[in-house]
Computed example of a mutant assay.
Amino acid sequence: MKKLISVAVLSAAVASPAFAEGLYLGAAYNSLAITDSRINGVELDVDTLGVVGGYELSPNLAIEGRLLTGVDEENSGGFRAEIDSYLGANLLGKLPLNNQLSLYGTLGYGFLDANISGPGFNVNDDDGGVSYGGGVMYTAGNVNIRAGYEMLYDRDNVEAEGLNLTATFAF
Rank of each mutant, 00 (worst) to 15 (best):
M1G: 08
L4I: 04
I5F: 04
S6D: 00
S6N: 00
V7A: 05
A8W: 05
L10V: 02
L10W: 02
S11N: 02
A12T: 02
A15G: 04
A15V: 05
S16I: 01
S16E: 09
P17H: 05
A18W: 05
A18T: 02
A18S: 06
L23C: 06
Y24T: 07
A27Y: 09
A28V: 14
Y29W: 13
N30G: 03
N30I: 10
N30R: 14
N30V: 10
N30E: 07
S31N: 14
I34V: 15
I34E: 03
D36C: 09
R38W: 03
I39V: 12
N40K: 10
G41V: 05
E43V: 13
L44Q: 01
V46I: 15
D47A: 12
D47M: 10
T48G: 11
T48L: 13
T48Y: 14
L49G: 03
V52E: 04
Y55K: 12
L57T: 00
S58N: 01
P59M: 10
N60W: 14
L61T: 00
I63C: 03
I63S: 04
G65C: 08
G65Y: 05
T69D: 07
T69R: 14
V71D: 04
V71W: 10
E73A: 15
E74F: 08
N75I: 15
G77A: 14
G78P: 02
I83E: 02
Y86C: 04
L87G: 02
G88I: 13
N90C: 08
L91K: 05
G93P: 00
G93I: 07
K94Y: 08
K94D: 01
P96H: 11
L97G: 05
N99L: 10
S102A: 15
Y104A: 03
G105Q: 07
T106I: 13
T106C: 03
T106P: 01
Y109I: 00
D113I: 11
S117I: 07
S117P: 07
S117D: 05
P119E: 05
P119S: 05
V123R: 15
N124T: 08
D125T: 00
G129P: 03
S131G: 03
Y132D: 02
G133K: 12
G134L: 09
G135F: 11
V136G: 10
V136Y: 08
Y138F: 15
N142P: 00
V143Y: 14
N144M: 08
I145L: 15
G148F: 09
E150C: 07
M151L: 13
D154R: 11
D154G: 06
R155G: 00
R155W: 04
D156V: 11
N157V: 10
E159I: 12
A160G: 06
G162R: 14
L165W: 09
T166S: 12
A167L: 11
